[in-house]
Design a protein around this nucleic acid. Structure first.
Lengths: 151, 151
DNA sequence: TGCAAATAAATTGCGCACAATCTTTCTTGC
DNA sequence: GCAAGAAAGATTGTGCGCAATTTATTTGCA
């Protein structure tokens, strides 16, 4: 009866499906470098600025320590990053790229270029998709229960 | 150096973040019904057509039996669906909504309406986002290694 | 100064996602 | 009819993603 309830009308489902398609597209190529998609975006954040704390990465990637702690431990075990206790604040742990971590950047760039070519959409379309997805993230993020559910 | 490598330039990361924001927006409301987001989309698929097999659900939701089998077992344990061995083909298992499963539909509709109101984007913007995300899913889905990586 | 509250990470537990494997049932080619 | 292969679903194992809790450290304030 309610046509708005159909699966193919749902923006959220479209995003859910697209996001998993995106990570799937990276999967095989990243696996050759021994990386998962989330580990890859963590490296993107570190290439942009090295030495971030766990919390900073969490804010940027929208992930908490429950996800990042073991993930960073695996990246460290893999020799890609190094974890350092902050000397001025012993609660903090800063994450630093190793030589191997820096070296991966070029290979990842090649992967990104290859995947971009594989997607049959224009730059404009992808830019619009990115912008709208970004706006959606901002618009839907603050939980509705906190904002106006007291009534 | 490569500005295209920046996190906020990545379409995939925008989708990854937006999808998690979307499921997060549903989380609390669905939790009151005892549902997760993936269980919810499974119900959407069944409300549209009841009695689907595990494979059909898998095709529609882009999920495999490794995800669906335990998920459907939980939905069944929760009294929302019922699993039936197909009599003509004993390999198949068809999933049927229970009375409780049908009854949930209205409450879910209310949740959807409430969340829609909470997102400060126009119908046109959301429609464009949905369409582009859908196209992206189609465009990026066939793995690049299968298509043209033999060179 | 001292102690409660806040903050940063880590840990635990559960539910996806997904690859890989296994079991059961069906189809097929003969 | 029967063996080989395919198909459907379940199982196992790993890595997120997130809530809830725990531990360690720092801050604030009486």
């Amino acid at each position: 009866m309610q046509e708005d309830q159909r699966l193919d009308r749902q923006v959220c489902f479209a995003l859910y499906a697209a996001a998993r398609t995106a990570t799937a597209a990276y999967r095989d190529a990243l696996a050759e470098l021994g990386l998962t998609y989330t580990q890859y975006v963590t490296l993107l954040a570190l290439w942009e600025r090295d030495g971030r704390t766990v919390s900073e990465l969490g804010t940027l990637l929208h992930l908490d320590s429950g996800t990042l702690s073991p993930l960073l431990k695996r990246l460290a075990a893999h020799g890609v990053v190094e974890r350092r206790r902050d000397e001025t604040d012993e609660r903090r742990v800063s994450i630093h790229l190793t030589e191997a971590g820096h070296a991966m950047r070029e290979q990842v760039e090649a992967i990104q270029r290859r995947l971009r070519e594989h997607v049959d959409m224009t730059d404009e379309e992808l830019a619009t998709l990115r912008e709208l997805a970004h706006r959606f993230t901002g618009a839907a993020a603050p939980t509705p229960t906190t904002q106006g559910a007291s009534q």
